[in-house]
C-alpha cells in the first residue's frame, strides 16, 4: 500500500487560516489501512482543527467525509454538489487524492493533510516499512524476492558495500542491510553462484527519471 504520515497540525492550521468552513475528506484506500486518513483520523483531525480555532476565537466549521477512493474519478464525483460549499477542502488521502480532486474541481482549493512517504506494509502493529521504489522494472526475482533498489540506501545492484555492519545499514542501526539478507538467503539456499556475475547498470527510463509515467491498457479503454 501507499504509506503516509499526518502533517503536523500547525502546518494544516496555517493552510486553512483564512477559512471559515472546510471539508476534511478521507479515503478508504491505503491511508485507511495505514491508519492515517480513514474515518477515525478524519474525525481526529476535524476535532483538533476545531479545538485550535475555538482557542483562537475564530471558530471553524468542519464537515467530515470519507470517500471510497480519491484516486478514482467515479468516487470523486460524489462531492460534486457540495464541494463548493466550503472555503477549502483538506484531503487526507495520499498525494494522488488532492490532485485528482483539484483536477475534477478546478474552482476549489484542495490542501494535503498528509505527507505521502513510500510503498510498503506493516511489519508489525504500528510500524510500516518501505518495500518498493516503483522503479518500473521489477528485478526482485534476481534477489530472492528482496529489492535492493528500494531497500539498499544506495540502491546497489552489486552489494553489499563496506558499510554493512552486523546486518544493519551504515545509515542507521534501525535499517536492515538488505544485501546482508540477500547474501544470507542465497547462502542458505546454496545459490550463492547467482550473485557472482556483475549485474549490469539499471535502465532508469521506466522509473521517475524517464519523466512522469502513464500506464495504458487498451483492452480497458472505452471508446468515445
Amino acid at each position: 500500500m501507499i504509506v503516509a504520515d499526518r502533517k503536523p497540525l500547525n502546518e494544516i492550521l496555517d493552510m486553512v487560516k483564512r477559512c471559515n468552513r472546510i471539508l476534511v475528506v478521507g479515503c478508504k484506500g491505503c491511508v485507511t489501512v495505514c491508519n492515517v486518513g480513514g474515518l477515525k483520523e478524519v474525525q481526529i483531525l476535524a476535532t483538533s482543527l476545531k479545538i485550535a480555532r475555538k482557542i483562537g476565537g475564530f471558530p471553524l466549521v468542519v464537515d467530515e467525509m470519507v470517500l471510497e477512493r480519491q484516486c478514482d474519478t467515479e468516487y470523486i464525483a460524489i462531492i460534486k454538489e457540495t464541494v463548493t460549499d466550503y472555503d477549502a477542502v483538506v484531503s487526507m488521502a495520499c498525494g494522488v487524492g488532492p490532485q485528482f480532486l483539484s483536477e475534477a474541481y478546478p474552482e476549489q482549493k484542495f490542501y494535503p493533510a498528509v505527507n505521502t512517504t513510500f510503498f510498503g506494509g506493516a511489519v508489525s502493529h504500528g510500524i510500516w516499512e518501505e518495500r518498493c521504489a516503483g522503479c518500473g522494472t521489477c528485478v526482485i526475482h534476481y534477489f530472492d524476492g528482496l529489492c535492493p533498489v528500494a531497500r539498499c540506501s544506495k540502491s546497489l545492484l552489486n552489494g553489499p558495500c563496506g558499510g554493512s555492519d552486523h546486518g544493519k545499514c551504515e545509515i542507521s542501526r534501525e535499517v536492515d542491510c538488505i544485501w546482508d539478507k540477500i547474501v544470507r538467503k542465497k547462502v542458505e539456499q546454496g545459490r550463492l553462484d547467482d550473485l557472482l556475475d556483475v549485474v549490469p547498470a539499471k535502465n532508469w527510463q521506466s522509473a521517475r527519471d524517464g519523466g512522469p509515467r502513464r500506464s495504458r491498457r487498451e483492452e480497458l479503454i472505452q471508446n468515445g
Binding site: 552489486n158 551504515e170 549490469p200 532508469w204
Partner: peptide, 26 residues
C-alpha cells in the same frame, strides 16, 4: 560507492546512485 550523504554536511541532499561501484569499474 561513496559514504551515504546522511553522514556528511549536506544530509538534505538528493543522492544519485545511478550506477554502483561495480558498474563504474566496468
Amino acid at each position: 560507492s561513496g559514504d551515504h550523504q546522511k553522514f556528511g554536511n549536506h544530509p538534505q541532499a538528493k543522492n544519485v546512485y545511478d550506477i554502483d561501484s561495480m558498474q563504474l569499474i566496468s
